[in-house]
Amino acid sequence: MSPSAFTRINLAACLAALALLLFLFIYPRMVLTELSDRICAGANELIGMIEAGDWAEANAGINAVNDAFQEKKERLKLFLDHEDLDELDATLMGCRRLIEVQEDKQILFELERVINIATYLKEIEVFTVYNLF
């Protein structure tokens, strides 16, 4: 490598690294925020439906939430701990079964859990002092 102050290769590598990092700072957060909001809204709607005893609507609702998650799951594996995603996946599957058998007490706990995990995943990428340390 040339002994000049800052070689072209280094500069190109720095710019490429910077571009990749900028992309990683923006894109995962966008995807996560969108998905988390979608899941949380869906889960809250499901709680309302179950409390109203509308199981048929709840069945369609959980499928929609699950489909939205499955659609983004593989992409999210690029940025998030795979165990966290597997946990959300398993909880959504459990919710589906509980709605099928119309288990009204347990399903409310499970939906709260879905909301908690989705909120946690969203907050991972939020830049706060608490997250920093």
């Binding site: 102050a5 800052f6 280094n10 590598a13 720095c14 690294a17 910077l18 990749l20 990092l21 990683l24 594996k77 690029l78 940025f79 998030l80 701990d81 795979h82 165990e83």
Partner: peptide, 25 residues
């Protein structure tokens, strides 16, 4: 660890690389 995304290694390494280059400069 296959449970950890590659990005968890790539981002800190690239951050260190950029810092190192900046301080060298």
């Amino acid at each position: 660890n296959t449970g950890v995304p590659l990005i968890y290694g790539i981002v800190p390494i690239l951050a260190l690389f950029l810092l190192q280059q900046f301080i060298s400069f």
